[in-house]
Amino acid sequence: MSVINFKLRNQVIKHNASLSYCYQCSTCSGGCPVALLTQGKYNPRKIIEMAILGLQNKLIKEPNSSIWLCSTCQKCVELCPQKVELTEIFTLLKNKIFEDGKVPEAFLLQGQAILDSGIAIPYSKAIISRREKLGLPEIKTAPIKEIKLLLKETNFENKILKGSK
């Protein structure tokens, strides 16, 4: 059952007021490359509609939410006649899903790599020697202590732990 949750809607509007400008014209869904290829399984207009209605169960609690199919190509954002910032709103919703601990594994893996090393892709031995052969300098990345401290502050570490369970 879909439960209307105005708290969620108001949270989204507070974060991004442009949500309330949407008049459901379908410019976004008509222009979306993923909506076309998934035959509407992913539909940016519907996600915005659900956000307007505050359908928390469908948006946040449902596993495998279609929202993850957004390719972040930002076409909808450029096309929207009302300048609704769809991608920003989707980001907020995805952040909420993450807090809830349900994100596709690939995001967790990237998050874990950042936690471990501060970078998304650690330098392998093979790459280091390839860099040398190409005459490229050694890269000194961020001190991991600093990054760990920051990620503790933003509560990122806990959220990754929750998601990995």
Partner: peptide, 21 residues
Amino acid sequence: SKIAEISIDKNESPIIVYEDL
């Protein structure tokens, strides 16, 4: 439905992709 964009085929016939609301 509001149309986002138009493309054409080889005969220059316009193609419209849209969501039927």
